[in-house]
Design a protein around this nucleic acid. Structure first.
Lengths: 331, 331
DNA sequence: CTGAAAGCGCTTACAG
DNA sequence: CTGAAAGCGCTTACAG
């Protein structure tokens, strides 16, 4: 069964290929008659015409692929959900979202985008200058560093606000001496640093002492040492804000073996609202994020970059709508 | 800066476009001279030639995209890791892996593959017959149901073996009355059913009574009811195999609030080896999977389907190599 | 052993 | 208001 092409539609509708193309791409500069338009659309539908991505890409010199360059990160639930939501919302706008998980060792990026000719490149991390230049020369638009503090408007997701929200919650519960549990993994630094930054600033704003930071791995040993640090000092900490739920859960487990009562001796708040966090005993207080909304915001940014019309979804929610405190039993 | 095309390479190397194409695609039926071959390769490299995906796809009527249709599943760490590994290993073979998360409501599939013209479609679930037929008519090869029990050879990953391994471990530790914690979510049935099947068969083979199955959600309430079921009956269960780590962790938490000692009163084994599982108190015994190896196996299957040469990695590991018992403190 | 030419399906500058 | 024609970059059947 040979493919149905725009030529077939043209012949069947009794018009030229040009007219078919204009109708299907909604270009009415040429002032096509309503009747012609109707006939073409009807015929296309009847024949089951689907435009060839290859033909279009070849002609336009640009595919409908959105290439997302994702830096080397540990598999994280939240990031996966964000990626899923982005695929969906870009898909609705007719774009194919392809993730390139770049661990440095792979093929040079330049090669990839010469091959794929994406409509736009979206860098979740920050692209090396050489790659950014290569894109520029190829005239491929770039959305760089979409999760960096400078670009929170792109997603509406502010890492700093996350840290701030944690502190504000703990302060509202009466805590003054607060610990911060950072993660000791360079790959997570782009997220950990701004969260800590936000937490620190919130403490300053509230007149609280700077949080006592301890870096740790996702391990019992690390959590144990951290808890010792926080509780054995001259001015012990009464609450801890953790970089994420996984760190928080490690601390929670450690508190149990050390017979430290949570939240009475030590309050604890995470970030991510992992499925397992609500199951913990005591259930973990955390910050949830509306990643579907964040992905929708990024889609809007992407579409405006490629010059496509924004999708139906009108208002982009405020940052405040994206983050939500989920109050459970550890605070 | 205009694009470097094969025509440019041809002119620069003093040969025809035909010759360039033959050399770059490694077709030596035409017996090109070694010198010509060398010159073409050198020139292509020097000019930084990268073939156009669109041009090639248009001509061949087939892109280098592998379209993976993923059924509606809860975000699960293991699946994300598998997907990541598959992207990598297909990428090394020159294919672009695109995931279509199909929740039914989206665009008809037929439309998508007419647009993309993928080299092959890989269905993680089972494709509706109408879609499978539509692919057949379009002459696009299909790898259907890659995680179903009938197709374990494709990935080397057997869900039934997972259940079997759990039971064998519990039996070896002396347990005879065993519970099975299934998940009460239709989306997970394709994984849950075969795992339970494997567990049941293992019990039969070992002369143990059939496992006492309880279905539950990822919730404390569900876990609590399940634990009551297992422990309050006429012949209480002494060990539980859970569908996955998340279910196991819910049970573990529930045991704590019900003052049931794990593993003394009730042993517990999960599946997945989530990062959080090693942090639990007591740390969770579980089944780990080498998903990189599984993805490598699937890549081999995919490449042979599209008629491409298998990648360098030679021997595909046996199923036994993919699953590993991770013995911690709950058994 | 190598090359000229056709054609994959699309869009658009141009001519009428 | 509409159409014929060119050309995006590739591969391959065919001719020499």
């Amino acid at each position: 069964m040979p493919r149905v092409t725009s030529k077939d539609v043209a012949r069947e509708a009794g018009v030229s290929q040009t007219t078919v193309s204009f109708v299907l791409n909604g270009r009415d500069e040429h002032g096509l008659s309503a009747e012609t338009r109707r006939r073409v659309l009807e015929t296309a539908k009847r024949l089951g015409y689907v435009p060839s991505g290859a033909g279009r890409a070849l002609r336009r010199g640009r595919s409908n692929v959105v290439l997302c360059v994702v830096p080397d990160l540990p598999v994280a639930e939240a990031m996966e959900q964000f990626k899923l939501a982005l695929v969906r919302s870009l898909g609705e706008a007719g774009y194919t979202c392809v993730y390139l998980h770049h661990d440095g060792t792979a093929t040079p990026l330049a090669e990839l985008w010469q091959h794929v000719q994406p409509a736009v490149v979206v860098a979740f991390g920050t692209l090396p200058p050489a790659d950014a230049q290569s894109l520029h020369r190829a005239e491929i638009p770039l959305l760089d560093g979409v999760f960096t503090p400078d670009n929170t408007r792109l997603t509406g997701l502010s890492q700093e606000d996350i840290g701030r929200l944690q502190i504000e919650h703990l302060a509202a519960r009466g805590h003054r001496h607060i610990g911060y549990a950072a993660v000791d993994d360079p790959r997570e630094l782009p997220f950990c640093r701004p969260r800590l930054q936000g937490a620190t600033r919130a403490c300053n704003d509230l007149g609280l002492p700077t949080p006592q930071v301890v870096s740790m791995r996702y391990s019992r040993a690390g959590a144990r040492a951290a808890v010792v640090d926080w509780t054995q000092g001259a001015t012990p900490v009464t609450a801890v804000a953790a970089f994420n739920d996984l760190i928080a859960l490690a601390i929670l487990a450690s508190c149990r073996t050390q017979h430290i009562d949570v939240p009475h001796d030590l309050a604890l708040i995470g970030v991510d609202d992992l499925p397992v966090s609500s199951l913990a005993v005591p259930a973990l207080t955390t910050i949830g994020m509306d990643l579907t909304a964040a992905a929708g915001n990024l889609t809007t940014s992407i579409l405006s970059t490629v010059g496509a019309p924004a999708p139906a979804t009108p208002s982009r929610p405020e940052a405040g709508d994206i983050l939500a405190l989920i109050h459970r039993e550890t605070t």
